[in-house]
Design a protein around this nucleic acid. Sequence first.
DNA 1: TTGCATACCTCATGGTTCTAGGTATGCTTG
DNA 2: CAAGCATACCTAGAACCATGAGGTATGCAA
Lengths: 112, 112
Amino acid sequence: MKPRSNPDFFNGVPELLILQLISEGEKYGYELVRLIRLRSKEQFSLGEGSIYPILHSLAETGELSTREAVTEGRRRQYYRITAKGRRKLASMLAQWQSVTQAVTSTLAPSHV
Amino acid sequence: MKPRSNPDFFNGVPELLILQLISEGEKYGYELVRLIRLRSKEQFSLGEGSIYPILHSLAETGELSTREAVTEGRRRQYYRITAKGRRKLASMLAQWQSVTQAVTSTLAPSHV
DNA sequence: TTGCATACCTCATGGTTCTAGGTATGCTTG
DNA sequence: CAAGCATACCTAGAACCATGAGGTATGCAA
């Protein structure tokens, strides 16, 4: 068995976190890698191999727009959220709420 | 894109639900299929193709014990939770709590 | 005897994440 | 100025998981 760097119950969470963070302001990939570690207080650690494919796929489907820029002497791909992306984020947040609530209530049903 | 019968954020949830329900008392597979629909108030619907493989794998790794019985004229495979299974359930519950909490706090960090 | 619900099972598919690699550049320090 | 490290990008392949679709068998009711 191999050690897993992230816990279970993780399906869809990387995409949710990425959309949320970018919705707060333009970000680039490498920045997200560090930001997610920071903001989750080291609970999550998404590597570049997790982040970049998600960014590409969100850009391709129009949830993110992208621009290339050179800042602080560094070539970077900046991502910004689109209207479509905001709709997707809202729907994912709603789903997250609904799933966690349903799991909780299934684990300890009120009618017992 | 194909329609998904269950929402995202579902990784590990089937296993968690199964362990929890069996921890409350011996169950058989087909029973779990209906019970999960009921207990989740139709929010989740796990088919037999999701349930049975999990039961087999939990039995193989010793988290569940199994016995065959004929009840109400029906041949059934009953599953019971073992000590190892209880430990696994406890650890999954802890992980569930920790992940949901970490996601929530990452989405809306307190130090902003 | 036909059909439906119960009850079991497995295989192939598709989607997601991770590991492990790779490239290139800027900055610092000996 | 060379070496090493951090930054910054990228992809391929493996591993894992849940699902749909299919298959078998039996009991019971119409």
